[in-house]
């Protein structure tokens, strides 16, 4: 199926929207009518057809515009992409993995030809045609990680594995939900998770780390995370809080359906073979509440989940101030009918 790439913005006039087909493939995060924080890790394999899980690295109708937005962010703030010196080999791992997977999953969009270390990469949607030598940084316009992640949706963290811990030693982060690569760079797993409430007591971080340390080549894993965002803004970084922090105050009963977006992160985890590092892509999907409720099951369930969520979690996720307005609006899409188990539309 060929993808119609949209021209749209994630800032200023916010022209972003989802087509009806894109709504159907949205990675809806709630598998029941209530929400409990959990690690919810599962194998990233056997993706359901026409879902966001079908390909290793999902490409959708927002691809071209998202890549344009990333370039804008990097122009303004080059520190959104960093790599400590020992992470170059891991960067080549990332480039090789993404090029290999994308050209296999989307042969009509991407082609990789390779003879030994001589490579030829074609990215049709972004009109890129690049010859380069694998392992030789001077043959690419950017370092290997930056080069390929300027052509892949989502943020990417590159975690070095040492001393039974993971270290955030490289990454490109332009679509983050309120955290900063520049702040977290060089931190270990516990340090960069430090602000999460509740969960720490449950010891789930220890278990999650153990799971991640044992992820093996060819056996990637995934989990979902979610929050809410006002306006389809990809770049809700702490660095730019002065630009988006005030957005919350603009939510009112007459605009809540279009202003409030469910923001889902599809997080995946990949063992990288040459460096033994772990790649941690965080792919952000946005959907307006008014788009979400076009799927009746999702409208009902989202109403119930947000209505019943504990106040401290609403606070942590940053929507306590407009929760009542949102829940009141969503209630008109909840007729009290039963919802089927699982995340799929029906």
């Amino acid at each position: 199926m060929s993808i119609q790439f949209k021209q749209e913005t994630f800032r200023d006039d916010f022209t972003f929207s989802n087509s009806p087909e894109q709504i159907q493939r949205f990675p809806f995060p709630f598998d029941k009518d209530s929400f409990m924080y959990s690690v919810n890790l599962e194998p990233h394999a056997d993706g359901r057809k026409d879902s966001a899980y079908e390909a290793s690295f999902d490409v959708d109708e927002h691809y071209v515009s998202e890549m344009h937005d990333r370039a804008l962010v990097l122009d303004e703030d080059p520190l959104r992409c960093q790599s400590l010196p020992h992470m170059t080999l891991a960067g080549w791992d990332v480039l090789e993995l993404i090029m290999t997977e994308k050209s296999r999953d989307y042969p009509d969009l991407f082609t990789l030809e390779r003879k030994g270390n001589q490579c030829h990469w074609i990215n049709r949607p972004l009109e890129i045609d690049q010859h380069f030598t694998f392992g030789d940084e001077t043959t690419l316009p950017h370092g290997p990680m930056e080069y390929i992640t300027r052509q892949a949706q989502g943020d990417f963290c590159l975690l070095d594995q040492r001393n039974d811990n993971l270290w955030m030693d490289a990454g490109i982060v332009t679509t983050q939900a309120d955290w900063s690569l520049d702040f977290d760079i060089g931190m270990n797993f516990f340090e960069w998770h430090a602000p999460v409430p509740l969960a720490h007591e449950m010891g789930i971080f220890q278990r999650a780390l153990k799971f991640l340390l044992n992820i093996q080549q060819g056996r990637p894993a995934r989990r979902l995370n979610w929050t809410l965002t006002i306006n389809p803004r990809l770049d809700t970084s702490p660095e730019n809080y002065h630009k988006w922090g005030i957005d919350k105050a603009t939510v009112a009963p007459e605009n809540v359906g279009d202003k409030v977006h469910l923001r889902v992160e599809l997080q995946t985890f990949w063992r990288l073979p040459r460096s033994n590092a772990l790649l941690f892509p965080i792919r952000c999907y946005l959907i307006k509440m008014s788009e979400l409720v076009t799927v009746p099951k999702w409208g009902r369930r989202t109403h119930r989940v947000l209505r019943d969520i504990p106040p401290e979690l609403a606070d942590y996720k940053g929507f306590a101030s407009y929760r009542d307005t949102l829940v009141a609006w969503l209630s008109q899409y909840d007729d009290g009918e039963k919802t089927s188990p699982g995340v799929w539309p029906e």
Partner: peptide, 12 residues
């Protein structure tokens, strides 16, 4: 099995 590394170099 696929290769597993429990004795990795510290590239720093």
């Amino acid at each position: 099995s696929y290769p597993v590394n429990l004795f990795a170099l510290d590239l720093r």
